[in-house]
């Protein structure tokens, strides 16, 4: 077997320690090694944003990140937001506004939205669209996603 490096990561509050090949992508580490299939891979070259997750509080493309780069990091994937019946505010807003169709881009969208709500004012529709511009969606035409973001009360605690 090829050279492997031991890494420790916290994913959705749980600590994992695994040996990985240096070339293993973070997206594949989560999906194949940890079996957390909620993170979706849409392009593997950092454009579509489907694989976006939160790493140490920032939205990150997991297809452009190696698993070894995540050593010591705290990661939140879509599985860590909220559960059916206990949606997070972002999940609730997406559900209420019909902000998803096939749902393939949704995990990445949620990560981007949570990050943007923490860091950006998002006062206007144009700002919301700009914040979402790095995540492609082919189903919704974005309108209901924009609506969902605009309806989330940014003052509310615990947005993720």
């Amino acid at each position: 077997m090829a050279f492997e490096k031991r890494i420790r990561v916290t994913v959705n509050g749980r600590a994992f320690e695994r040996s990985v090949e240096p070339r293993l992508l973070l997206s594949d580490f989560l999906r194949e090694t940890l079996d957390l299939t909620g993170t979706h891979v849409g392009c593997e070259h950092g454009v579509c944003g489907a694989c976006t997750l939160l790493m140490n509080g920032d939205s990150v493309r997991s297809c452009l990140t190696l698993a070894v780069q995540a050593d010591g990091a705290e990661i939140i994937t879509v599985e860590g937001h909220g559960k059916a019946g206990e949606f997070s505010p972002a999940q609730e807003a997406f559900h209420a506004c019909h902000a998803l169709q096939c749902g393939f881009c949704t995990p990445g969208m949620l990560a981007t939205v949570v990050d943007a709500l923490r860091k950006l004012p998002l006062d206007s529709e144009a700002e919301v669209r700009e914040a979402l511009a790095g995540n492609l969606c082919r189903c919704t035409g974005y309108q209901h996603i924009v609506d969902a973001v605009l309806t989330i009360n940014t003052k509310e605690e615990g947005i993720s």
């Binding site: 957390l36 299939t37 909620g38 979706h40 019909h98 998803l100």
Partner: peptide, 23 residues
């Protein structure tokens, strides 16, 4: 009526199952 979708719960929480998620 604008019924909220039943598909959403699994798609919003990572419990969806696309072909590449089947083990």
């Amino acid at each position: 009526a604008p019924i909220k979708r039943r598909e959403d719960a699994r798609l919003l929480t990572g419990e969806s199952r696309f072909v590449d998620d089947i083990r």
